[in-house]
Design a binder for these strands. Structure first.
Lengths: 250, 250
DNA sequence: GAGTCTATCTCGGAA
DNA sequence: TTCCGAGGTAGACTC
């Protein structure tokens, strides 16, 4: 029996089922009219409304309203949850240590209480990240331009890390800034800071912003600063080679 | 009847209940063994596992694993969801326009399908935001130091917005950077950029980072740059006056 | 609609 | 453990 369900349970029934589910490290799902108070990194109060409450086996606790992707109140994995009855009312409590945080939910009326002994071994396979773009460019440097040779990756400078450092066919230094989404002015500013740092030493340093697209304002600033743009889509293969390094090509 | 529930439904029963719930703009909650494919801003694939699926009245769609606060796959509010049966299997689909994104979930086995006609009019009341800190400092400038006078808020400069601009008792310009959480090196860099911009014009500009705490590295950088730190906790009152402006004090 | 910024951001990786 | 940066960030707000 993977699933246990109770419709419109009494307070005691709800209490027992929830405690049972937590103890068995099940996925506990509750539909209820509730209110919530949180105190920790911030402080919040949520008045009564009908919501979805979820307690996960890893200690995650969430209160979801009828809108938005984000929970309205929550606690992260490893929080300790329990149910208790006080003055005839059912409460849920989730406590986190370091930082000390406490979320208390008062259940005014439970419509559905259930738990689910979920088994889930798989992780998400995802493609289209900045890291994948870097891998792709290291493996296919001509995507930047003919004759481009990468020299270093995540190269540390005062103002941060240069995504890819390389040289063009004339031996001029090239600073590559990667963005996996549309690039804004902040990306241009970041690239400019890197280039300025190098230009102090020597001239002829090229700065290239690589992204699938760019905002209008960012393109204007880029041109003003004498920087370049390469339109490149992040790769879409789900099983990209992890751990591609420059060693393979130098 | 606020709640409708079916345990271990057949494919057709599950299909009908889910479509019914979506049409009635209910909160649809499903416990099922499923796999998922996403294509849009990125691309992802999730192999079979036992999960919680939620469809909200506002169009939000979520697939939750047995761990983590964030859903493993999701679509934002205003997405269009539907269920359908293809080659004897039950599928859920959620589509978003602009950007074009599609999430498809195949239900291999539904353990629990339910929907809940939730009513929830209340919004979260929360305290402890950066904005509240700004309000507090505008109302009590001496928290920065004796004689401090705020002059402008969200003051636009080339590299962004200065949280609070003011003058000390000697008439020297002060640039205040607020953080509601522990400040890191990025906050110091940000403050430094603002101060540098002003120092081009005139010397004697003071930069002050205001936060409840600061990382070790950030404090070192702050001292190197001749900037200052004020340890201030964000306010905890839940009903802070919204819309406090400088007009009330100048 | 596009751009910018905060967040109880969350989450993963590195020092 | 602490810290830093990426994210399909989400969500709020301004222009």
């Amino acid at each position: 029996m993977k699933c246990k369900v109770s419709e419109n349970p009494s307070i005691k029934e709800a209490y027992r089922l929830i405690e049972d589910g937590i103890r068995k490290r099940a996925l506990v799902v509750i539909l209820a009219c509730c209110s919530a108070s949180y105190e920790g990194r911030a402080r919040s109060r949520l008045d009564a409304g009908e919501r979805l409450i979820v307690i996960k086996p890893d200690g995650t606790f969430m209160v979801h309203q009828d809108r938005k992707v984000d929970p309205v109140n929550w606690q992260p994995p490893k929080s300790r949850s329990r149910a208790y009855i006080k003055r005839g009312s059912l409460y849920l409590e989730s406590i986190r240590r370091d930082p000390e945080e406490r979320l208390e939910v008062e259940i005014h009326e439970a419509h559905l209480v259930s738990y689910y002994l979920a088994r889930d071994v798989h992780d998400l396979m995802v493609a289209g990240h900045e890291n994948d773009m870097g891998d792709m460019i290291i493996m296919h440097p001509h995507l930047i331009e003919k004759g481009f040779r990468p020299v270093a990756r995540e190269y540390a400078v005062t103002s941060g890390f240069i995504d890819i450092l390389g040289k063009d066919e004339n031996g001029s230094l090239m600073i590559i800034e990667l963005k996996s989404r549309k690039a804004g002015v902040s990306a241009v500013k970041q690239l400019k800071r890197y280039v300025d740092e190098f230009r102090e030493d020597r001239v002829g340093v090229r700065g290239v912003l690589v992204a699938p697209s760019i905002t209008h304002d960012a393109m204007e600033m880029l041109e003003e600063e004498g920087l370049e743009f390469r339109e490149i889509e992040p790769p879409r293969e789900l099983r990209s080679n992890r751990g591609v390094t420059l060693d393979n090509f130098l």
